[in-house]
Design a protein around this nucleic acid. Sequence first.
RNA 1: GGGCCCGUAGCUUAGCUAGGUGGAGCGUUCGGCUGAUAACCGAAAGGUCCUGAGUUCGAAUCUCAGCGGGCCCA
Length: 1058
Amino acid sequence: MIKEVTDQYNANEIEMKVHEFWEANNAYRAVREHRKGAKKFFFVDGPPYTTGHIHLGTAWNKIIKDSILRYMSMNDHDILDRAGWDMHGLPIEVKVEGALGFESKKDIEAYGVGNFIEKCKEFALRQKDDMTGQFRTLGAWLDWEDPYMTLKDEYIEAAWWTLKQAHEKDLLDTGKRVVNWCPRCETAIADAEVEYEDRDDPSIYIKFKLKDEENAFIVIWTTTPWTIPSNIAVAVHPEFEYARVKAFNTEGDSETLIMATELVENVLRIGRYADYEIIETMSGEDIAGLAYEHPLADLVPLQAEIEHKVYNADYVTAENTGCVHIAPGHGIDDFEVGVKNGLPIFCPVGSNGSYTDEAGKYTGMNIRDANRVVMDDLLEKGLLISEKTISHRYGHCWRCKTPIIYLATEQWFLKIGELKEAMLEEIKKVNWTPDWAGSARFKDWIEGARDWCISRQRYWGIPIPVWKCSKCAKIDVIGTREELVERSGADADIELHRPYVDKITMPCDCGGTMERVEDVFDVWFDSAVASWATLRFPHTKEQFDEWWPADFITEGHDQTRGWFYSQLGASMVAFGKAPYKNVLMHGFTLDGSGKKMSKSIGNVVQPAEVIEKFGADTLRAYVLASSAPWEDLKFNWDEIATIHRTNNILWNVYRFPLPYMALDKFDPQEVSYESVEAHLRSEDKWILSRMQSVIADVNKAMEERLLHKAMRAVNEFVLEDLSRWYIQLIRPRTWTEANDPDKLAVYRVLYDVFVTTAKVIAPFMPHLAEEMYQNLVRNVDENAPATIHLCDWPTVNEALVDTDLEAHMKAVRSMVESSSNARQKVGRKLRWPVSRIVVSPTDENTVAAVEQLRYVLMDQTNAKYIELIEIGESWNELGVEAAPNPGAIGPVFKGDAGKVNAAIASMDAMELKKGLADGEMEIPLADGTNVTITEKMVNFSETLPEAVASAEFAGGVVFVDANLTREIESEGYSREVIRRIQDMRKELDLDVDDSIKAHIQIDDEGVLDLVLDFENYIAKEVRANVLVIGLDVDTTGELAKDWNVEGISMHIAISKEE
RNA sequence: GGGCCCGUAGCUUAGCUAGGUGGAGCGUUCGGCUGAUAACCGAAAGGUCCUGAGUUCGAAUCUCAGCGGGCCCA
């Protein structure tokens, strides 16, 4: 039996109950099982990093995923949806280091790598569990019990196998490259792991002495003096104009300087030169090849053996001096200039950020400390033109915030550059939402694709499965555990992490011994293989053959160059095709003012905080409805509260008929739709038609992944159609006491609309939907599916669609609104009936609407009669007013204009109107003469009869006739009385079917007389068995109150009748 | 500095693809309703459609330049 429900929408209570219910019934599993064998839908969860806590962004991410998966499931898809966790990498290492009080790699080595990774693993697993709980409170259904974890063997094998493919396809490379390097963590870090922040650094101008010219120098600028010992060359732009300048200092001494012509003025001012003279200008191409002396050649002996020259490079910009210091060991562009011109890659800096013994004088010095020393040395040699400090954006390690440096080191690479064209072809086949995410943003990114450095010099990661012979340097890449065991004879259940795999050696064909290279994978490589790792490939191949590639993935826009890219790269290497078919790129959650949420600013809003206040369904509805998925979401508490209010209204709508249904023991199993069909009123057919339209709207939105449109369509239906209209229309029908078919029709229609609405909100607000379903469906039919999420998505029932009716109802609603407006103008409240409403339509739809829905219009406007006039005709009770138009009269009648004006003003307006219908007429003036006037000379306006007000609406005008009659006054006052008594019943907290005694004293004889006309009506409406109304009545009772009704004082007392 | 996206009422937004008098919700004020009632309805006030230029008879919409915000890159 359908039960009554609580007064208020109590989200937390509902959600807790629903979670317990899902748990107890294993609902998630049942739903996935139920769709086995249906059309496959392979979803790959972008693995969040196991930080231990979710934030609004990750919550939004999972909410989108969950909504789409639930929708797909209800639409009969067999869903594969293992949740994923990204568990390796530097962030966890740094956390564990912090917990153990470590400061450098030495501490880890001393503690023991085995112990260290054990801690990392424990830490990651614990954080994963915490986060799983948090995601579950959102109602997100993924396979939480069998998630993929990057630290698992099955996952590690997927990474290994992929690298082996790269090796076999000759896409794996090793060699010196310049990488972002964190001197504290002593490892290469990914571009994505570099965080840019403002930092103060030296800004120095230096001159390098030219070799073959006395007293002549080329001028460069840098913010990293510590890279000067590594300087190998100077780059100039081939097409810029450079100048040879004779510069004079304040003492009048001169020297020759070379720099870009347009920058001369600036540089010399900064260098405090007194005067200058441009000797000659030349192109950058001309000065290429100039040789210069390394400024610190005497302090860094190796530099003395290297030849230093000027080279051309296109990336040089016309800033500072236009001549760029090149240290191929310390910059990506520098490295490229070096490689292109066959220069030595000189990198005298070690992994911990201190100079190696190649650095001569600077050996052992930390590079940051060396800045000062280098500048002093340059100053002493007279080569430092200027020294200042600037604040600029500089890269920092995202974990430990140490300023990064660029180092040329030995690393492993995937030759992604070679796959660029194929990648660009592949992404065209992918369906992107929004379109530009793929066609513009991702495409641009891929066009700049470079080789991918996949190696890291750390501990907690997937070990790179490359074994190298110490004798012949041959390498072998191992693809699976099986292969490893086979080749090395290692234990079959060996732990695949460091340090255990490090100890494994294997024989080389040359007779030497192969040892694993020490590096681990970049964590981006971990998640890159997710789409096949989640299918346990290569461990088992069946699932892969059945499911891969992914039907759908969705992540934030930062993942364009992150996971969307890394997956594509890895997949191109492994399979030569894109690993996904549909991608939805979603936005970021920002704070209320559009700023990034960050701990340091303190503007972070926790999902748990929102859930505690409003519940998960409200959070879900909010993030889904508030903006297009790909747009950033400015978090706003007021908006959340508004959405919550919408949900509360849905709850109220749903709750409204339940007491009546319960009282009447309404059983939807007994009262079929067919049995009431003949008794449906227009509004019933209308709400059923609207319901179908909503299903169609949601379908269309979901097809295009426009979740905001889906959610908004539902909200609008609930608010506008159900709550503000349908429920208002049918309220009196639910109060009928007899078991008449008109009431049963309402019950049945409400029932169907509620059940359908529950299904339509199920993907978005799964808890509330479940709550409604359990009561409405499961309580009456124990054979119904156990949970709403097992149900099929509702299909549009074309037989119920009536677009004409929808248009008519829309017109009626606007007429009702306009009549409210008119009532307000004429000062007549809705409680008082009006004798009639006159509708002057401008279109057929309005006419049809009034004809079809006249009773709805009468009801809702509280009018005794609706008068409909013909299209285009004006209401014949309107008066006409005529006013002379001086602008037209003056020029024609000149001096007589005043008389003409007066004549027009004094004439009967109707007569004028008729006379001027033909364009002109003759009128008499006061002096007895006649003149001819034209229609332009008179302005006509319509006037309203007494106590009538009008208001326009889209399909015409309504006139509200508020003239009083005795009957209307009687009814008006009676309803005032009824209202007061109902209010008092409420105050006494009486049940709807309790009877009362009521005593009413009215201090105005006239009004008393009016009210007495409706005595019986009043008694019936307020359920009074005893009703005494008079001038002098004893008004004592359980509750007695004095009222002022339109200036008349009344005293009312009521008591419950036992 | 570059790429992509966003900028419309105090707040959240629709309209922009396809140029033709800018719509809604929240909030505010006033009024109304009343057995969904701590709910609900109507009206009013509130707009340099980020700025500037251009195209056009006509620009929130198209183009260009700038400003502010986001993501990414340098």
